[in-house]
Design a protein around this nucleic acid. Structure first.
Length: 236
DNA sequence: GAATCTTGACCGTGGGT
DNA sequence: ACCCACGGTCAAGATTC
């Protein structure tokens, strides 16, 4: 995998960010007559993205991150004060940090509306928790969820939910894979069919419903993980 | 009784040496 | 190339509905 330190890596990042720019543009178009706040939000994202591109192009990016820090940032996003980015700041603990496998994923940050104990958002799908694990450097454990319809419909979508360190009411939610299940009940409530609501659509939903959103584009290269037969983990 | 949650164990991946 | 730490998933038992 390429790091952002290399020329090719930097170019890659520029490409990715440009892609974000494109998507935000599209998003803005989709929002059409939405509240001004949404527009403000998108324009802000747009300007931030452009700034990032400018920084990278001007070379500010180089030498600022260590290789692993960059990898960690790539994993959860620079705006996320994640355990990874946390730890990567520590000079003595940054090693051995496993780069999570780059699958198709989308990360968002949401706030819990129902109190600290509640899950952040109902994203329109039913999830079943299958694991929880303490993450190095994180104050709160990470919860692992898979689609309830995994068995019945073979839906392989999963998500990881982790409380942020600085604010227990904020959650980082990382979606892996797309839903292939049909959510009849939700579709009825939402008033729209949802045969295969991809992350982009979810993003639109989440943005329009309010919570602070951070997106991460799916990496162009990623292992197929669906067929992995192995088991693994050490929950603490 | 079925569905879901909790939690210990297992295993693959990837960085360090 | 090997070792080791970490993260993700499995599965059995417990709990809830």
């Amino acid at each position: 995998m390429e790091s952002v330190e290399g020329n090719g890596g930097g170019r890659l990042v520029v490409t990715e960010l440009s892609h974000i720019k494109e998507l935000v543009k599209q998003l803005e178009g989709h929002l059409g007559g939405s509240p001004a706040l949404c527009k403000h939000l998108t324009s802000e994202i747009f300007s931030v993205t452009e700034r990032s591109i400018g920084m990278i192009r001007s070379g500010h990016f180089h030498g600022h991150h260590r290789k692993r820090a960059a990898a960690a940032a790539g994993d959860l996003g620079s705006a996320t004060p994640s355990p990874l980015s946390d730890v990567s700041d520590l000079p003595f603990k940054a090693s051995k940090k496993r780069k999570t496998m780059e699958k198709k994923k989308h990360q968002i940050r949401v706030s819990s509306t129902g109190g600290v104990e509640n899950l952040p958002v109902d994203d329109g799908h039913s999830w079943r928790k299958y694991g929880q694990k303490e993450i190095l450097g994180a104050k709160h454990p990470r919860g692992y969820y898979r689609c309830t319809h995994r068995n019945s419909q073979g839906c392989m979508a999963t998500k990881q939910v982790q409380r942020t360190d600085e604010d227990a009411t904020l959650f980082d939610v990382i979606y892996h894979g797309d839903h292939t299940c049909v959510q009849k009940a939700v579709a009825a409530v939402a008033g729209k069919p949802e045969p295969e609501m991809d992350a982009q659509s979810r993003l639109h939903d989440l943005i329009s419903t309010g919570p602070t959103v951070k997106t991460e584009l799916p990496p162009q290269q990623g292992r197929s993980w669906a067929g992995r037969p192995a088991r693994a983990a050490s929950m603490t």
